[in-house]
């Protein structure tokens, strides 16, 4: 499954890029599984997306949960808790 993964704010700084295209194996079907898969790639994802890090996610530009399911071609964004206003 091909996904477009975006990073914002502190997370983009930590990972060193704003976006990347990934092709994940069939057992990666949810936001939490994608995050774990990225972490397994090692640095810088392993520290930036570490389980303890407070991170939010969106799928196709809508706030998502760990269990939100992914689909081929989805736009998945990871970012820190928001601080606008």
């Amino acid at each position: 499954m091909k996904l477009s993964v975006l990073y914002f704010a502190r997370l983009r700084d930590a990972i060193g890029r704003p976006a990347e295209q990934v092709d994940v194996p069939a057992d990666v079907t949810t936001v939490a599984e994608l995050r774990a898969w990225l972490v397994r790639r090692g640095s810088p994802w392993s520290s930036a997306l570490a389980p303890a890090a407070p991170i939010r996610a969106a799928v196709d530009q809508v706030m998502a949960r760990d269990a939100t399911r992914l689909h081929d071609g989805a736009e998945v964004a990871f970012f820190p808790p928001v601080t606008g206003g």
């Binding site: 502190r10 706030m63 970012f79 928001v82 601080t83 606008g84």
Partner: peptide, 26 residues
Amino acid sequence: LIDYLKTDAPFWKKERSPEGSHWVEA
């Protein structure tokens, strides 16, 4: 609207201070 914007809208603030720049914590 402003209470929800603060937690649900994807904006992030970075502050520049005399000590350097840092992302604002939620």
